[in-house]
Amino acid sequence: MKDFSIDDFRYDGSKPLKVKKAPNKVDDLYEDDAHYEAMLRQQAIEMDIWQEQMFSHNRFGLVAVFQALDAAGKDGTIKAVFTGTNPTGVKVSSFKRPTEKELEHDFLWRSWLELPERGTIAVFNRSYYEEVLVTKVHPDILTTSQRLPEKATDDLDKLFKHRYEAIRDMEKYLNRNGFPTIKFFLHVSKKEQADRLIARIKDADKNWKFEEGDVAEREFWDDYQDAYEEAINETATDNSPWYVIPADDKKNMRLIVSRIIIAELKKLPTAAQKPDEERFKKLQKLISVIEGQ
């Protein structure tokens, strides 16, 4: 068992990411299942405290983006990490294939609709990053279903360059307005993904998680690795960092993600908030009024 620094997984643009060199697994952070559960519960309590602090301050929000290949563990991680946080302070949005209505708008439109209110955390299960990942691997999507102006797809390198720029601008804008964005890439190995997909097929109760298209997408494994590497390197900034999380061990992954979110919440000015002493004194006078009612 070992401890870790969140900086081990942080990419803020100061160093390039090499996906093939990024680990899929690290040494266990827990001694056994009971120890893992205890650590996760303790971190959940801490996260709830800091989210409540942010809520009472009512000046900041947080956007937490989760990206990964199929079967990396996005759903389970989100459920495990945020269980225990006041549900009024967390909003989870899942971004699947764009609907007809969403395709009538620009690629960032649907994400704007799901941004958090001040004091809350918006959790994106997939996000606008799909538009520089899936479309990078399958560029025909841009020409067949996204209804872009013809000239926009004449030069795909330029199109993606502009999309990276738009994403950086969006995240910079959000940060300036009190909504920093942190992004997680749950980095699973090809072998571990295969084992999890097979497990979903063998277990009838998990068949609902399996999509036949996931098998076809494995043929593009290297292309997706390249797409993630480029997207992360193009959009990692100090104010909107990426965290590349080893995902072959789900328990480690959840503990690391939870610790990072707590650390990011503690960075906010809300962490230094002090009680209003004047208001505290005034409220004390109401105790006798309540007792006399």
Rank of each mutant, 00 (worst) to 15 (best):
D75E: 10
G84H: 06
T77M: 10
I6D: 01
D155Y: 00
S240W: 02
H57A: 11
T181H: 02
E131A: 03
I45M: 08
R279A: 15
I201R: 07
F82M: 15
K15P: 02
K136D: 11
L197C: 07
A34V: 09
F66M: 03
D7A: 04
A80L: 09
G292A: 15
S93A: 14
E211P: 02
I260S: 03
E114A: 15
I245S: 03
A271C: 11
I260P: 05
K158Q: 07
K282S: 12
G76M: 09
L159Y: 05
R279M: 15
L69T: 04
T143Y: 04
D226A: 14
A71S: 13
K285N: 11
L283W: 11
D12M: 01
E31H: 12
L265D: 05
M54G: 07
L133D: 03
A71F: 10
V132W: 01
N24H: 15
K151Y: 07
K202V: 14
L40E: 03
L103C: 06
G119C: 07
R254P: 04
F220W: 10
V244N: 01
K15N: 05
K191E: 13
D12Y: 01
I141Q: 10
I261D: 02
A263Q: 11
R279T: 14
S5P: 00
L148V: 00
A199T: 12
H138K: 14
K20W: 09
E150A: 13
E165W: 00
R10D: 01
I260Q: 03
Q193V: 07
K96S: 13
Y36K: 04
D28Y: 13
T143C: 03
N233V: 04
F66D: 04
L286Y: 15
K136Q: 12
A64N: 07
R97A: 15
I256S: 03
K158S: 03
T77G: 08
S5H: 05
W109N: 08
K74E: 12
I245N: 04
E150K: 07
T99E: 12
E291M: 09
I201N: 04
F280I: 12
W112C: 06
A236F: 01
T143K: 08
D33K: 15
D8G: 00
K74R: 06
F82N: 05
N177A: 10
F179Y: 12
V289F: 12
T153G: 00
Q284K: 13
K251M: 07
E277H: 13
